[in-house]
Amino acid sequence: MEAVITVVGKDAVGILAKVCTACAEANVNVEEVTQRILRGTFAMIMLVDMSQATLDFTAFSEKMAQTGQAMGVDVRCTRQELYETMHHI
């Protein structure tokens, strides 16, 4: 199962490292990362593979949100179908 992790907030040192560490701890494989600065806001999107994850989706999602809170950024984890459905016919 693939999921999309989005990180939005103020840029700081080590955001990518900390999010990736949290993924690794749950045995979630990072497949693709894009990041950019939009109007001064840091925005990163990661496509991850959760098929071997040691946590279930809800628990992983909470773990990521907490990781984000500790850094003062908004981290969300969502099944990718949501975006595909909303933006593609």
Binding site: V4, T34, I45, D74, H87
Partner: peptide, 16 residues
């Protein structure tokens, strides 16, 4: 691959 702007738009619609 999913479009970054599409994803951010969805997040903004939900959160803000």
């Amino acid at each position: 691959m999913l479009d970054t702007n599409d994803i951010l738009e969805t997040i903004q619609m939900i959160s803000d």
